[in-house]
């Protein structure tokens, strides 16, 4: 009985409320991340809140339903691309020394896209949010593995 309840998530009330509030939690996390330069917050805290929204989905709907929607490959991609964008921004400072880099800067003007207030917090958010959720998935899957071992015994 407890297994069935755990597999299919929580009650109907929790599921409905989760569906309604999920967008707001994500929006709140992104708001905190983007407003990091004038109010407390920044990418770190925003990432934690975004990860919490994913964790909320997993708690309310059960493990299988949540894992079907949010692939682990996408998470790894988010973490790594977020970190590599940081590196790219560092490299941009040195790009004007090389002719190829100068060409890119003049023609495509990436430094106007990578404004400091928008992209950087989003990178931090990607890293922290995806990273935290990956660890949560790992812990959850560990529990699942342990249950399987107990059932086999």
């Amino acid at each position: 009985m407890a297994d069935i309840a755990r597999e299919h998530g929580m009650t109907v009330i929790v599921k409905t409320v989760t569906r309604l509030t999920l967008a707001f939690i994500l929006l709140y996390g992104i708001y905190i991340a983007l407003n990091g330069h004038i109010s407390p917050g920044g990418g770190f805290v925003g990432g934690v809140i975004v990860a919490l929204s994913f964790v909320h989905v997993m708690l309310a709907f059960g493990k299988e339903a949540a894992l079907k929607r949010l692939h682990s490959k996408g998470l790894r991609l988010a973490v790594n691309i977020g970190a590599l964008m940081f590196l790219y921004i560092v490299m941009m400072r040195f790009a004007w020394k090389f002719p190829a880099g100068r060409f890119i800067i003049e023609k495509m003007r990436p430094h106007e896209i990578f404004a400091n207030e928008i992209i950087l917090p989003l990178c931090e958010l990607a890293i922290v949010g995806a990273g935290l959720f990956t660890v949560f998935i790992a812990l959850v899957l560990l529990c699942k593995y342990e249950e399987k071992i107990e059932k086999e015994k």
């Binding site: 790894r76 970190a83 490299m91 040195f94």
Partner: peptide, 23 residues
């Protein structure tokens, strides 16, 4: 002297590159 941040940027960049490509 301007390559001082590379001491931190290179290992971190390598770490995330390995994480992307290594699997």
């Amino acid at each position: 002297m301007a390559f001082i941040p590379f001491f931190i940027a290179i290992p971190l960049g390598a770490a995330f590159l390995i994480s992307l490509a290594g699997k």
